[in-house]
């Protein structure tokens, strides 16, 4: 009888513990999901004009970009 009661107690305790763990996991998943949805709602549209103080490209790289621009303009 004692063994039976002990086994029943173990089962109940295990079930309660498992349920709590599942609940925590669910809350965590929901938090992450909501956070990601909120992040994706951020409107990112800032426009920054070219900074004249920024380092200039080396001439050979400028030449590549000029070629590329010519090809794209010819499209």
């Amino acid at each position: 009888m004692r063994t039976l009661i002990f086994a029943a107690l173990c089962i109940v305790t295990g079930a309660v513990w498992a349920d709590t763990t599942t609940a925590v996991v669910k809350v965590y998943s929901l938090d992450v999901k909501e956070r990601i949805q909120n992040l994706e709602l951020i409107d990112v549209t800032a426009e920054k004009p070219v900074d004249e103080q920024a380092a200039k490209l080396e001439p050979d790289l400028e030449a590549i970009l000029d070629d590329v621009a010519a090809l794209e303009e010819a499209e």
Partner: peptide, 10 residues
């Protein structure tokens, strides 16, 4: 395609 020619060069 024509729109990729510049990108190819790049």
């Amino acid at each position: 395609p024509s729109y990729y020619r510049g990108l190819r060069r790049l």
